[in-house]
């Protein structure tokens, strides 16, 4: 089989970015990661299943894709893996420049706002309950990550909110 040119990927797992380089040679993969060089044999079993051999070690990788994420399960241990595409240098710089001085407390899941406990302009302490969001019949308290001033209330009781939607905006209070 022909030799294909190597390719590099970056994946973020649990907040850490890892680089992997792959090249296919005579049906086998030559893999470089974390300064290690490995040889592997990979068989697609189905769209969601890949059988891997690393030496004699046989591993079954279950995976599914959803946008930039891959959900991967090995031996019943699940991980969400994000493919990281390198940003051009100027964009990375811009992202750093626009890093927010204020931070938003966001809803961790889709649900309904039950109550907002704070008022605009109020000083809140670390761990103080800011709002309550109900999902799947359980009330979840959103707490302040630090001492801060409430800059803006972005939702009202009764609102349906998505995961990641800001509920309360905070600004640092020295």
């Amino acid at each position: 089989m022909a030799k294909t040119a190597g390719r590099s990927f970056q994946f973020s797992i649990e907040g850490k970015v890892h680089r992997v380089s792959l090249a296919c040679e005579s049906g086998r993969w030559r893999v470089q990661m974390g300064g290690r060089q490995l040889e592997a044999d990979a068989w697609p079993i189905s769209d969601n299943c890949l059988s891997l051999k690393l030496g004699n070690r046989s591993l079954t990788v279950y995976l599914a894709r959803d946008r930039e994420f891959r959900y991967i399960s090995i031996d019943g241990k699940q991980f969400r893996v994000e493919e990281v595409r390198e940003l051009p240098k100027d964009q990375a710089f811009l992202q750093m420049q626009s890093a927010p001085a204020a931070s938003a407390v966001v809803s961790p899941m889709p649900g309904q706002v039950v109550k907002i406990h704070v008022l605009q302009g109020e000083i809140v302490e670390r761990s103080q309950t800011l709002a309550i969001v109900e999902a799947m019949k359980m009330e979840n308290e959103l707490k302040s990550p630090r001492r801060a001033r409430v800059r803006k209330i972005c939702a009202s009781p009764g609102d349906l909110v998505d995961a990641g939607q800001p509920i309360v905006e905070l600004e640092l209070e020295e």
Partner: peptide
């Protein structure tokens, strides 16, 4: 936290990379 040792990490990265390679 889900424990992630070297062996498991390598297998995940390899699986993800082979899948991404196939896709691209």
């Amino acid at each position: 936290k889900q424990e992630l040792d070297q062996d498991l990490l390598e297998a995940i990265l390899l699986g993800a990379a082979v899948d991404a390679q196939g896709k691209s």
